[in-house]
């Protein structure tokens, strides 16, 4: 309903001649020869940022361009395609979607005639969740979603080495941020695209998190011997600081929630526990912590409420 209302208003606007769509002002940063990162801002999803709060990337392989994540909307996808066209003459051959969150995949619509790949579990989850995501994104980023339709990845990716052109890409099937998180390590250049398993200078999001599994995945990523680390959100790094930061935040988060549950705090009380000083400089940490209480606390609470004989 909300989506239709927006679409109608926006169509009316374009009929009046205001045809300029949301301009993401995308720029490609070449972190290693032929490996590019397109960075968004470290924020919540807003009308102002149009959902450009993440890092996408692309790798020029010598035998076509491999794209990592498609962004939050059709317009983002189109502008990313255009940016790639300005950067290289090679055609785009494949887009990998790292996981099922909406800011990472709605741009797929713009990648026509290209393979759309994701881990099988991600494809399954998107079948169930995409419709709801669409409604939410229209509500959260407004204008920038104009004309966005659901296009799902169809090619099932699997873990292993992908040799393409001059590159050897290592695909890692991990989990923890969601049930299936794809990380892509370009062993040729040493650039690791970590997806949302790694956040940098921004609090991690947890709507589908399994923190234990997430920590295990972070250990795997940390052991890869990368030279450049591209987090799902936040600045690119030449060392493992973002992995350490994400791991310690998650550790604090799970420890805080567990001891709150032990003490019998209500969820609303937990939401107002002050964020540890080590993490107060992370972007949107208060909002994310409160969201995490909603995502994770209920199960901890329920586990501590023993079923009583009903009389």
């Amino acid at each position: 309903m909300i989506r239709l209302a927006f679409a109608t208003i926006l169509l009316a606007c374009s009929a009046l001649g205001h045809t300029a769509g949301f301009d993401y002002k995308l720029a490609a940063n070449e972190v290693r020869p032929g490996v590019f990162v397109v960075s968004g801002v470290n924020d919540d999803l807003t009308f102002e940022n149009g959902g450009n709060i993440l890092n996408t990337g692309f790798i020029v392989t010598g035998d076509g361009v491999v794209v990592i994540d498609a962004g939050p909307s059709r317009l983002y996808g189109e502008q990313l395609v255009a940016l790639i066209g300005q950067t290289t003459d090679e055609p785009i051959v494949r887009v990998y979607i790292t996981h099922h969150h909406p800011d990472h995949f709605f741009g797929l619509q713009a990648f026509d005639g290209v393979e759309h790949a994701a881990l099988p579990q991600t494809i399954n989850d998107l079948r169930l969740l995409a419709e709801g995501y669409s409604d939410n994104m229209y509500r959260l980023i407004g204008n920038a979603m104009l004309g966005t339709e659901i296009v799902l990845p169809t090619l099932a990716a699997s873990a292993g080495t992908l040799e393409i052109g001059s590159r050897k890409l290592e695909l890692l099937a991990l989990s923890g941020h969601t049930e299936s998180d794809l990380a892509i390590f370009d062993t040729t250049s040493g650039v690791l695209f970590a997806g949302d398993l790694v956040f940098h200078a921004r609090a991690a999001t947890t709507p589908h998190a399994d923190i234990e599994g997430w920590q295990a995945s972070l250990k795997t990523l940390d052991s890869l011997g990368f030279e450049v680390l591209v987090p799902g959100h936040g600045p690119v790094s030449e060392n493992n600081a973002p992995i350490v930061e994400t791991a310690s935040y998650l550790d604090w988060l799970s420890g805080t929630l567990a001891s709150a549950a032990d003490a019998g705090l209500s969820p609303a009380e937990v939401m107002f526990i002050p964020v540890d000083a080590r993490f107060r400089n992370l972007a949107v940490v208060t909002n994310e912590f409160q969201r995490s209480v909603v995502h994770l606390y209920q199960a901890l609470e329920a586990a501590l409420l023993p079923a009583t004989e009903t009389q």
Partner: peptide, 13 residues
């Protein structure tokens, strides 16, 4: 006490 944004409108603590 309630968070300013409801993450789950079916269950707002």
């Amino acid at each position: 006490a309630a968070a300013p944004h409801a993450e789950d409108s079916m269950n707002v603590p």
